[in-house]
């Protein structure tokens, strides 16, 4: 139980990943598949941020001007520790790529609905064959 509580970020990330994978496999609506893909990507963000995090670690080097309570606590307790900036920076790239994928896929979904009149993958494949 103690390990679950200390690793709760990873556990929640894994649960989100499974939910996203379930939606990708089981849902027949293309739009719902897209939402499931977004949930899956959120789980990846969460696991990466949790990897680089440090308890009471600072985010910026100038804690006096920082709006974050975390920085103020870290400076107050005298712990000069900082979170790893690399996972956070990588996840910024991942978020932008996710936005791009979602924007382009939604335009394709709109076109799909216009041509087939439905978003059900079973009906779309039936129309094709």
């Amino acid at each position: 139980m103690k390990t679950i509580l200390s690793n709760i970020d990873y556990v929640v990330s894994v649960i989100l990943f499974t939910i996203g994978l379930y939606g990708l496999v089981f849902k027949h609506n293309v739009f719902k598949k897209l939402l499931a893909l977004n949930i899956l990507e959120t789980s990846v963000y969460l696991s990466y941020i949790a990897l680089g995090d440090v308890r009471l670690g600072k985010i910026t080097t100038s804690w006096a001007k920082s709006p974050y309570l975390k920085d103020a606590i870290a400076a107050w307790t005298g712990k000069e520790i900082m979170v790893n900036p690399i996972p956070t920076g990588l996840i910024l790239t991942a978020i932008v790529v996710c936005v791009c994928i979602t924007a382009f896929s939604l335009s394709l979904v709109v076109k799909l609905y216009q041509y087939f009149g439905t978003l059900d993958t079973r009906k779309i494949t039936a129309l094709k064959g």
Binding site: I8, G52, D53, V54, I81
Partner: peptide, 12 residues
């Protein structure tokens, strides 16, 4: 555990 200062990904 998350936030442990002894993990390899900790910035130090």
């Amino acid at each position: 555990p998350v936030g442990d200062p002894h993990v390899p990904s900790y910035a130090g």
